[in-house]
Design a protein around this nucleic acid. Structure first.
Length: 426
RNA sequence: GGAGGAGUGGCAGAGCGGUUGAAUGCACCGGUCUUGAAAACCGGCAUACUGAGAGGUAUCGGGGGUUCGAAUCCCUCCUCCUCCGCCA
């Protein structure tokens, strides 16, 4: 959520940003609506405060009068107060309405894109920031897509997953299950080595938590919901991990805060069908290692680069061809100011699969989180939050199986062998 | 799941209807003293909104209520502790 201060003080900048996201002039009037509503909020509050102040003052007088035995005078003041109370309670309910409306408008405004975000509408307008320099692997026509390989080597049983739960819940078995475990350990170790503290958060979160990172109310339909307990299954570790710092004021020397965690991720993906959801391309449950940083505003873009480099290095160790996209305004997530997507090439499908998304949210999340830091003068400011997948398993597995298939079997990348403890899947 | 107890500032802990945003201690920051440090002493030390400022308003787990007035009384939800039950 943008701060009112940002909207008021950098109105033109906000508008330019929203235009980059493809907002029409019509829609942009929301900015002025917000400012007008905020004016009303201030005005109402000032008036309300004045009346409350009167009530407080008179109440104290009444207290004094009762003490000194002047009950009659006190009772006279009581009737005077009831008029003021009537006005103040009207103002109060007006203010409640204003605040609710203001909140609703603010929640509907996405983050302002960074200057380097290209204009554009769809994913076709994303800018390729970096591209695999070698040739893309050409496996010939005999190459099998990962779901065939999974079946051939008995790594993943999609039908069993469907039987037990439903479609999109694959069951990994044998070397497939071990490969999952190996990847998770590998990613976590790499993150630890890069200075991230490992955490294992809860997989169900409450509404306050989901709201703070922006899943509610925006992406309500994306999450599984346990109604009886009013809890949501996490769509990403970002949600519980970032919320560690909800309502926290840190000191400036605490920067940088680096956290990593592995969790299963649950996504309803309602309305997705077709070849996009074939095999592991899009599933309802997958494992992911997430990296999260809380950074000083002056440093957050350096941190973003650092995180991008971290992910890059993982893909190189896994020997997977990848490219990095700088998302355009139209494709940028609601809460993000700048996002780099990583895609790996899945050589049998001849498709690029998104396996990571690394973003700087600037203060968009921290505003809702109320995550602040104290500077040297004891002044409080919102911190910047960033996160990235490092990495998302299901699609990595898909790409890994496809790219590394040989007539002998599927060759495990060298970096991963210490974790799988086998060099080839036969 | 059942019965009982409790939730106050960074921490500990008073207050249980009337200048209490909240005693006191510890921690922390600044100062005096000291060659330096410690001790001692003096001062400061929650968050948010609002105002040029003085100040005003709100917040004592969350929400609602009673009252002229609530940290203090009532209702409700949440969390923690103790006992019982269940259990990886």
């Amino acid at each position: 959520m943008l701060t009112l201060r940002k909207i008021r003080e950098n109105k033109e900048n906000v508008i330019r940003g929203l235009e980059k996201r493809g907002w029409s002039a019509d829609r942009l009037t929301i900015v002025d609506q917000i400012i007008a509503l905020d004016d009303k909020r201030k005005e109402t509050q000032t008036s309300l405060d004045q009346h409350l102040s009167d009530i407080n003052r008179i109440s104290k007088e009444i207290g004094g009068l009762f003490k000194s035995g002047k009950g009659d005078e006190a009772n006279a003041l009581k009737s005077k107060i009831s008029d003021i109370k009537e006005i103040s309670s009207t103002l109060e309910s007006t203010q409640k309405g204003v605040l609710a409306e203001l909140d609703e408008l603010l929640l509907s405004v996405p983050n302002v894109p960074h200057d380097t975000v290209p204009a554009g509408v769809t994913e076709d307008d994303n800018e390729i920031a970096e591209h695999w320099t070698g040739d893309l692997p050409d496996l010939g026509d005999d190459a099998l897509p990962h779901w065939e390989l999974a079946k051939q080597y008995n790594l993943i049983d999609f039908e069993l997953g469907t039987k037990i739960t439903g479609s999109g819940f694959p069951l990994y078995r044998g070397q497939g299950a071990k490969l999952q475990r190996a990847l998770i350990s590998f990613f976590l170790d790499e993150a630890s080595e890069a200075g991230y503290e490992e955490v294992m958060p809860p997989l169900l979160v409450n509404a306050d938590t989901a709201r703070a990172t922006g899943q509610l109310p925006d992406k309500e339909g994306q999450m599984y919901y346990a109604e009886k307990d009013d809890l949501y299954l996490i769509p990403t570790a970002e949600v519980p991990v970032t919320n560690i710092y909800r309502d926290v004021i840190i000191s400036e020397d605490d920067f940088p805060i680096k956290l990593t965690g592995h969790t299963p991720c649950f996504r309803r993906e309602a309305g997705s069908y077709g070849s996009d959801v074939k095999g592991l391309n899009r599933v309802h449950q997958f494992d992911k290692v997430e990296i999260v940083q809380i950074a000083h505003p002056d440093r957050s873009y350096d941190v973003l680069t650092e995180m991008v480099d971290h992910v890059k290095q993982l893909l190189e160790k896994l020997e997977l061809p990848y490219r990095i996209l700088r998302l355009c305004g139209g494709d940028l997530g609601f809460t993000s100011a700048l996002t780099f997507d990583f895609e790996v090439y899945s050589a049998a499908q001849k498709k690029w699969l998104e396996v990571s998304s690394v973003s700087n949210f600037e203060t968009f999340q921290s505003n809702r989180l109320k995550l602040r830091y104290k500077d040297g003068n004891g002044k409080k400011h919102l911190a910047h939050t960033l996160n990235g997948s490092a990495l998302a398993l299901a699609r990595i597995v898909a790409s890994l199986l496809e790219n590394h298939q040989t007539t002998e079997g599927i060759v495990i990348p060298k970096a991963l062998v210490p974790y799988t403890k086998f060099e080839i899947i036969k």
